[in-house]
Design a binder for these strands. Structure first.
Lengths: 247, 247
DNA sequence: CGACACCTTGAAGAGGTTCAAGAAATGTGG
DNA sequence: CCACATTTCTTGAACCTCTTCAAGGTGTCG
């Protein structure tokens, strides 16, 4: 599995314009006519390329912009004062980062590229100005934020109620579903994050993550070769994630 | 401890107008002049009173409005298909509910009054129309959603990293801090939710919640009389919640 | 090739859950 | 207003899942 854009083009060949971006349906699908769409291009100031490991923004950085992922894969994480770290999400092409910074004008988490990546920088002032002009854009911004809230509530359910196997099954199904929506395989994926980062996201220790992968593998549900995962039995995964209520 | 409004008035005596609402600084502190503020009154269509146990909206209900709490106390909760329930938050006066519904036009959680309550109904179409007219209101809406995202990330950190005592300490400190911001005591509070609901929110079983309360009580940190809690040693609670890193 | 980061596996241990019973508070009806 | 039923909360004991500690294996990159 390679990790090119959905159209297979290399990032460098793509023009810096929302009106000309093959991700627009994922990122800013505002349903504008093409004239309006060109105005929307004003939102994006510039793009930025990052290498694996680069930090896009840090907790405490002043907030100016939202970031739309063109290519690549990110994690966001928060930390408590005593140093405990929690991965709050993994983001891929078409997803928006930085919403946490609006409330206080400072970012509240770290965003780190887990592979080489490119993001569109959208100064939030521009977003607000254009939102006032284009109701469709305004509503889309609201939907993006609402979606993040709904997603977070799902993670709370996972962390508050599920056991290790259920968490990992939910995680894999969610990842592969999002990748599939971007044109990748339904059954194969490459994990861009370490076992430790998975564990942090799912509220389990690295050893438990590893053991659970091994268990799934022994049971013939998935095939694990390091970070290459092949899902052999999607139904079994769904079963684990959401066992038939058999009170 | 009584649970009147901050100004001690009974709800019935208050006019239905944001420009005349003593919660405006909490709820919609948009910094408008008083003429603009009157226009803002158009946002609120009407209020609704609820009795303890009443459901404000349900998972699946079509989304039309946001709700600002005038008085009372709510919980919001999501459920998985197999019936596991997760309380995603407890809301009090001045806080906004319903943001989860924007993305899909359907509410994604249940909102239940934990005591008699009154909410201001804000049709979201109105909010969007007026947001385009008033940049200050627009930005405020964005901040409210961003704050919810940041709060959710904090809960993830709690659920993913903390132990039972830390969770309960964080919970109590958060509750009392929010109540204090509304004019209530820094050290006394009445829990409006059951042990079971606390447990659901914090990812622990009811027995563990009860035992942890007992432990805190034995240690002289809090005084527990059913749902009446008096915090005897705030510093000790903070210590538990955020132990000095002592490598 | 060697150093380092990352991952896996085993065994012992701890924190939280489950099961069970009883106590306290709350609500209901006479 | 009291008696009874019901819900909510507390506590104990056994159990289980996940963590912790430890060691070794695998892969990667200079």
């Amino acid at each position: 599995m390679t990790y090119l854009n959905a159209d297979g083009m290399k990032p460098e060949t793509i023009k810096i314009a929302c009106s000309n971006c093959n991700l627009s349906e994922l990122c800013m699908p505002v349903g504008l006519n093409s004239d309006d769409m060109k105005k929307l291009d004003e939102v994006v100031a510039v793009r930025r390329k990052l290498k694996r490991g680069d930090v896009l923004f840090r907790n405490g950085d002043s907030f100016n912009s939202l970031y739309a992922i063109r290519t690549g894969f990110f994690k966001t994480c928060v930390a408590s004062e005593d140093g405990r770290e929690q991965v709050t999400g993994f983001q891929m092409a078409g997803e928006i980062m930085g919403l946490d910074g609006i409330v206080s004008n400072h970012h509240n988490c770290n965003a780190v590229a887990l592979e080489d990546a490119e993001v569109c920088i959208m100064p939030f002032d521009n977003v607000e100005v254009l939102s006032r002009e284009f109701p469709a854009l305004q509503h889309h911004v609201h939907k993006i934020m609402s979606r993040e809230i709904v997603r977070d509530h799902g993670v709370m359910l996972l962390l508050g109620n599920m056991r290790a196997e259920e968490r990992l099954a939910a995680f894999l199904l969610n990842l592969v579903q999002r990748l599939h929506a971007r044109g990748f395989s339904q059954s194969e994926l490459i994990l861009r994050m370490s076992r430790e980062e998975i564990g942090s996201y799912l509220g389990m220790k690295i050893e438990t993550v590893s053991r659970t992968f091994s268990k799934f593998s022994e049971d013939g549900i998935i095939d694990v070769k390091q970070r290459n995962i092949r899902i052999l039995n999607t139904e079994a995964l769904k079963q684990i994630y959401n066992p038939q209520s058999c009170h």
